[in-house]
Design a protein around this nucleic acid. Structure first.
Lengths: 233, 233
DNA sequence: CTGCGAAGTTGACCTAAGTCAAGGTTGACG
DNA sequence: CGTCAACCTTGACTTAGGTCAACTTCGCAG
């Protein structure tokens, strides 16, 4: 793999505390590849052969059942996904596909597990990574169980504004609306309608650009809570 | 704490590989207490002061938002809960209450974290424990997003039959119906109706006893998949 | 500029599930 | 053995959200 990409991988909290020789051994075994958009990387039910790290681009995690499909999460650079399946040497619970041209690091799961046994700092980093992922899903699950679709949308907009618009009230949706709809657990049609019901709360939509002109009102409706909406904790 | 309870704690996969002196240090700092039913142990949003281990009884994890409440999981002996919050030194994302008279081990989270730093085997056990919890929530989330409430109930019944009835088709519900309803993400009224729509598929309910007389038909409706319904993987 | 196709929107309609209000069961306790 | 209080069930009704089909918008290739 290209040495210019190494530092950003090394900088990941998952890798930055491990021993240099172990890191090198992992990278030695790894493949760095660039994939076109809409390419299936892993399929749920398959044994976990690789740990994946998104270096550039964007990856969608999704799941199937009952001839329905649901987007479970979007993975942005630089972060790893499907760590749990690799550690447990189990099958993937989710499928993954690229949503943009993406540069991705593939580390054979056997190597991940053997270095995990060898390197104590790596093992500890894994715990924290897993704890973070766990809490992310718990928050998603709480949102889905306790909120209406309009509330979920409102809170997502408020979060995006904090993350991408720096609280200015104007930002771009990071993905298309059908994906957003699936992520929020609704149909594209219903997302459209949800945007309309948010119009009186100062939500202006034009294509993929969003403007929030009355954040206070939106918050009254959304009732955000750090126990669901704060990605940090 | 009573020494007769030590072996079952030690036998937990979370604790069975760690060094003896570290285990003793943890237990030295821990409290073993028996609580009456319906007692609140932790409240979401509070800082994680203790790691909890259910030795006897039953604990419900639940969450609040929008003046609604949802049961997130039931914890049975012998297992630990809210590990992630303890490790990250963060606030609890869920509340917990006893659902039966319960014997519970409380380990101060500072001690957990310091032993985590000290004991490599303990750190590795934590990774696997977290990975298991992560995959549990992912499965719950998939079920909620991809299945109707009747399907969720049908699959839960099939699973209970495997776990408690050993596949005989007859077993007791492990908790009351309102709890089951909340766990499945529906109202008690709707659970009643769901049981009725399952009647033609050989589901007989009398109080808390369930008899499945046509498992094949039930499976046709439930369409179980190990990627959601197998608690082992 | 034009025309095509995908993505998004809208409206009409339908269905699953929630809500509310009675009843009915059951089980603990006097 | 009766009474009370949970818990559960049922029925009538409402509502959120899904479905289907038509239409619009927009980006883009020719």
């Amino acid at each position: 793999m290209r040495s210019s990409d190494l530092p950003q991988v090394r900088a990941l909290s998952l890798f930055n505390s491990m021993g240099e020789e172990n890191f090198e051994a992992l990278m030695q075994a790894a493949y760095l590849q660039t994939f076109p958009p809409q390419l299936d990387l892993v399929h749920e039910g398959d044994p976990a052969d690789f740990l994946y790290v998104v270096i550039e681009g964007c990856v969608e995690l999704y799941a199937h059942a009952n001839r329905r499909e649901a987007t479970m999460a979007m993975v942005h650079p630089v972060s790893a996904f499907i760590l749990a399946a690799v550690l447990k040497d189990a099958v993937y619970l989710m499928s993954a596909r690229t949503r943009a041209r993406s540069k991705i690091l593939l580390i054979p799961s056997e190597n991940v597990r053997s270095i995990f046994e060898l390197d104590d700092a790596f093992a500890r980093a894994m715990v924290l990574e897993m704890a973070g992922s766990y809490r992310y899903v718990i928050k998603e699950h709480k949102g889905l169980k306790l909120r209406s679709s309009v509330e979920r949308l409102a809170n997502t907009l408020l979060r995006q504004d904090r993350e991408f618009g720096n609280g200015t009230g104007e930002f771009e949706l990071p993905y298309d609306k059908r994906t957003l709809a699936s992520l929020l657990g609704m149909t594209p049609e219903n997302l459209s309608r949800a945007f309309n019901t948010l119009k009186p709360y100062g939500v202006e939509v034009s294509g993929t650009t969003i403007r929030l002109t009355d954040i206070k009102a939106l918050k009254t409706l959304a009732k955000p809570t750090p126990l669901i909406d704060d990605p940090k904790t």
